[in-house]
């Protein structure tokens, strides 16, 4: 019984983003790459599932430039994943990434459960998990903060807009995309880190998966930083005077009230 966890390597949240001179993308020099924060919850849930179901095997999988992308797999292995696969690829859009992940999962015999983070914090698309589910023809729930498994199905809680919770039952196999709050991801243990370093990671070239260049649907260009904000207008006086000045400014100057 295989559990696949789909991972993405992203710049650390503290990264100050710089744009390339030709605006074709961001300058990746000096960036500290980490596991996408939402993916940590997915890895943790996969390991918890394995602890309750000893026949389960956790497979970590990622698509990206393999030289650095393997690091995210080593992190997952150190946390307790059993096997890892990297699909060596660059500049793929969401749909080709999802198709590649689904093809490899299928080639490895399919999954009982696929876990992922609800969103990658780099391009904020929230697309790949649902697309993988569609390519695998399995049900999915995203933005999940509670997860329970029985042999035939999974019962999950989805956080919808406005604090609404949806309780959803998914017949297995299924894909579940994690939200913050699902669990508390463990730190890798020292023996785990040592073991992860030695583990052979399976490498697959994207070009061998039979996904044509014309499958790519979305292109991004014209990367730019936000416009500089004018200097802040500080309001002075005691609390009552400051409050009055602010209300006046919001009403008469900014006209947002």
């Amino acid at each position: 019984m295989k559990v696949f966890v789909c991972l993405k390597q992203v710049p650390d949240t503290e990264t100050k983003i710089k744009i390339l001179p030709d605006h074709s993308g961001i300058d990746t020099a000096g960036i500290k790459w980490v596991m996408n924060p939402y993916d940590e919850f997915a890895v943790e849930e996969a390991i918890k599932f394995k602890e309750k179901n000893p026949t389960a095997q956790v497979w970590a999988i990622t698509a990206g430039p393999k030289a650095r992308a393997v690091e995210v797999l080593r992190t997952a292995l150190a946390m307790g994943a059993d096997e890892a696969i990297v699909i060596n690829a660059e500049n793929m859009d969401a749909i080709t990434t999802a198709e590649a992940l689904a093809k490899v999962i299928q080639a490895e015999g399919g999954a009982h459960l696929v876990l992922a983070g609800k969103m990658a914090i780099d391009n904020n698309q929230s697309s790949v998990p649902q697309m993988v589910a569609e390519f695998l023809n399995i049900p999915h729930t995203s933005v999940v903060s509670k997860f329970e498994a029985t042999p035939e199905s999974f019962t999950v809680e989805r956080d919808a807009d406005g604090g609404t919770k949806e309780v959803v039952q998914l017949m297995s196999p299924a894909l579940v995309a994690a939200n913050k709050g699902l669990n508390l991801p463990r730190y890798a243990s020292l023996p785990g880190i040592m073991k992860a370093k030695k583990k052979v990671i399976k490498e697959i070239e994207f070009s061998t998966l039979g996904i044509a260049a014309t499958e790519q649907k979305v292109k991004y260009a014209g990367f730019e930083l936000p416009a500089e904000k004018p200097a802040v207008k500080l309001l002075t006086g005691d609390a009552t005077a400051q409050a009055a000045a602010l209300v006046q400014a919001l009403r008469n100057e900014a006209k947002v009230i």
């Binding site: 710049p11 990264t15 100050k16 983003i17 744009i19 961001i26 914090i121 780099d122 391009n123 904020n124 014309t214 499958e215 790519q216 649907k217 979305v218 292109k219 991004y220 260009a221 014209g222 990367f223 730019e224 930083l225 936000p226």
Partner: peptide, 14 residues
């Protein structure tokens, strides 16, 4: 992108 640390323009193809 990066929740607003930068912006880009998307176009479609194929």
């Amino acid at each position: 992108f990066y929740s607003g640390k930068c912006f880009a323009t998307a176009t479609f193809e194929n």
